[in-house]
Nucleic acid binder design. Structure first.
Lengths: 120, 120
DNA sequence: GTAGGTGGTTTCCTACAGGAAAGTACTTCC
DNA sequence: GGAAGTACTTTCCTGTAGGAAACCACCTAC
């Protein structure tokens, strides 16, 4: 009947784990980081711009992912009153708070590449 | 025939995007961050410990994810010569370099929760 | 011998992610 | 009138992620 002490059910841990799950579920899927990264670099872009920028994505995926991101207030969608109607997607102030996370991720990925190619 | 300038095909961008894809593919799936987070907190843990710590995971998933992480040198697997044979999983030095990334992610998730509950 | 603990693997199943291609609607250019 | 561009949506299909449950092997305590 002796049960090992559970190390991980302290409140601080539960909150951290929950927070990571939240973040991951908002950014789940193959394309969200690409879209956000592109919008952070490019500022304002149209649907077709994104379709061309992001290598390999299809219109269905792009449409769905943009809706997801807009729903979570990470990007904004603005219909422009131009001759052939255009839509501009841009990162929101809130979405921009992801920049350090994206930078960390890019930095780690670059270092990983180097260590695999160099040390292995 | 006029084509809009592509903003995203500068070498630095391509490398960043590739790096993000690399990182995401190593950490893909529902459980990798949970496992890494738990091992960073708990130091050395056995299979059954992890099964109990990580709420909801099944033995198949845990086994598979541990193999993935070990293959990428993010965790170590040590068979202990104890009475009933036990295995210890621990984070490697290399896996520990993910700590800032995991911290960023947890931090962002916590802030997201607060902003949704508070401001909305 | 049998119940219970360790550390898994294997089988089977389902749901969702994601891709290709076509369709919709509206506009402008020629 | 028709091609071409913008911005999507819809349909159809496939592959894989991931869960439940059973099974294997080995050891110890009773």
């Amino acid at each position: 009947m002796k049960k090992k002490a559970i190390v991980n059910n302290t409140p601080v841990c539960q909150v951290r784990m929950q927070a990571i799950s939240d973040t991951m579920s908002l950014l789940s899927g193959k394309w969200k980081f690409h879209i956000l990264g592109t919008l952070i670099e490019g500022c304002k872009l149209g649907f077709m711009d994104l379709l061309r920028e992001i290598d390999g994505i299809g219109s269905k995926m792009l449409s769905k992912e943009l809706q997801d991101l807009e729903m979570n207030h990470l990007i904004s969608r603005t219909v422009m009153d131009t001759k052939p109607i255009t839509v501009q997607y841009a990162i929101t102030e809130y979405g921009a708070t992801l920049t350090p996370l994206i930078n960390e991720m890019a930095k780690w990925g670059i270092e990983y590449r180097q260590s695999v190619h160099g040390a292995k």
